[in-house]
Every structure is written in C-alpha cells, then in structure tokens.
C-alpha cells in the first residue's frame, strides 16, 4: 500500500508562510515527520501558485528531497509548476506523480502529454465535464477515457493511479459504496490490474471532529479490502496509522461502532452526525 502523506499543503498557515518565504525548515520538518510516521510518498500541494509556480515547485521539490528519500506527488493545477517539479525531482527513490488529471478533455490534453514526456506517474480523477459521476459504472467510463488518452500519448498504463473521487458521506452517502465498487472494477479494466488512489479525508468532510477518525479508518479498510493500492492520508494520525498497520479498525474503535460505520458506508443506515449514538 502506497501511503501518500498529505500534510505539506498550502492551506495550512505554517506551510503557506514557509512556501512564501522560502523557509525550508517547517517544510523539511513536516516531510521528515511524515516519512518517519510511515509515508512512502509525500503530496506537495502548492495551490494554483499563479505568481511563481515553477520557481516555487523547483525549490520545494529539491528542499524536501534533501531530507526525505521518497518520491513526491506534485499537487497543483499549474502546468508550468508541474513541469518544473518533474525536472527537479530525484527519481532514485521512485517516479514522481502528477496530481492530477481528470477525464475532462482539456485537462487530459494538458497533463497527459507531460506525464508521457517525463514518463512519470499520474493520478486520473474520475470526473468528467458533465457533473458528478452517478455510480461505479460512470467512474469506469471516465477511467477508460483516461486510459485511452494515456495509450495515445505513450504513457504505460501502470503509470496511472485511478481515483474514484471520494465525496463526503454527509449528503453524498451513496457515493461511498460507488467508490468501493469502482476500486474493484478498476482492477478489471486491464491486465495487470489498474492501480487506484483516493483522497481519503474527503469522506469525513463536514462531519464532527469526533467522527472523522472512525469514518476515515473504516472507509480506508473497506477500500483496501476492495483492492485499493494507494491513498493520500494523514500519516500523523496515530489511530489511523494503527488501523493501517493492523488492518483492523476494531483494534482502535469499538466493534459495534465499526460495524455500524460499515453499514452506513454501505448505505444500509442513513448517515447523521450522531449515527453512532442510536
């Protein structure tokens, strides 16, 4: 299982300031901490970085790889910044990953040729221009568009991580099971099976802080059982990492709570913030 640490992110104040001021210390510290906690790749989210994207990405990739011997997942919509990051990336610990293209034609035409040029990896988000995918079949149809484009530009299919697009459970409950099903189906789209990745924390968006842990842990384990190969996660969450190690959310959370959470994720019980209390 590829665990991609999510904590170097422009949305957190400390990291944002460090990026702005080119202050290596907080970024390097966060990189080392995540790797020690078990991350075997780090997501680098610099946001759109419209002013200085390429320069920032070049600097941050080199800064991180000075201290963390892992490949990086370059997370921005800024194409020039992605290219700069790929040029700066040290491949000796593995290929860099572009995060991400979707199934939208414009993004496929923009990002896929770059992935082919650098022969790096890329995340293919199962989202098209025509709104949210309705179910697992919709997600697979978009996945096939992404794979077709990769083939066209000369990117081997094992360079792709298909992302089923995790939505928050509150308000989009049925999509949780569609994601699990999609991860299963992705594996049938090619031989050897296609790889998959999720942005895990989305599942618990808008849920109360006390619920985030169990929701992410149980959903992660269900996805893993379905064949998930990679996840963008918070490796500094101790409870979560224990579930990663033990493959058993019941080692951390009450058995009945885990079972009820599984039922909510499968859509058998309607979600409410306090569903564990009834």
């Amino acid at each position: 299982m590829l665990l991609i640490g999510e904590r170097i992110n422009v949305i957190t104040k400390v990291q944002r300031e460090a990026m702005k001021n080119r202050d290596p210390k907080p970024i390097q510290e966060m990189a080392v901490k995540q790797v020690k906690a078990g991350a075997n790749m780090l997501d680098i989210n610099i946001g759109p970085a419209e002013d200085d994207g390429p320069e920032l990405m070049d600097w941050i990739v080199k800064t991180i790889q000075e201290v963390a011997q892992v490949p990086l997942c370059l997370d921005t919509t800024n194409l020039a910044a992605i290219k700069a990051g790929l040029k700066a990336h040290n491949n000796q610990w593995g290929r860099a990953v572009i995060n991400s293209t979707s199934g939208e034609t414009v993004r496929l035409n923009t990002f896929m040729p770059v992935a082919a040029e650098f022969q790096c990896d890329i995340i293919g988000l199962c989202l098209s221009g025509s709104g949210l995918p309705a179910d697992a079949n919709d997600r697979c149809a978009i996945a096939v568009d992404i794979m077709t484009k990769a083939d066209e530009v000369g990117l081997p299919l094992d360079h792709i991580y298909l992302d089923p697009l995790v939505l928050m459970l509150n308000g989009n409950q049925e999509h949780a099971q569609h994601c699990i099903h999609a991860v299963e189906m992705f594996q049938t789209l090619n031989d050897p099976p296609m790889k998959s990745v999720v942005g895990l924390s989305n599942i618990a968006n808008t849920a109360p802080a006390s619920m985030k842990g169990i929701l992410t842990a149980v959903f992660f384990q269900m996805l893993r059982d379905a064949g998930l190969t990679a996840a963008i996660i918070d490796t500094l969450e101790k409870d979560f990492m224990e579930v990663v190690q033990t493959r058993n959310p019941k080692m951390v959370y009450r058995s009945d709570h885990v079972e009820k959470t599984e039922r909510v994720i499968r859509g058998e019980i309607m979600y409410a913030h306090s569903f564990l209390e009834v």
């Binding site: 409950q173 309607m270 979600y271 409410a272 913030h273 306090s274 569903f275 209390e277 009834v278």
Partner: peptide
C-alpha cells in the same frame, strides 16, 4: 431540505 440533518435533529431531540 437535508435528510441527514433531519435525522440528526431527531437524534438530538431524543437525547
């Protein structure tokens, strides 16, 4: 207009 919230308010009321 939110059935998740509708369930939540009922849970809170019963609590």
């Amino acid at each position: 207009l939110d059935f998740n919230l509708s369930k939540q308010i009922n849970i809170l009321l019963t609590q």
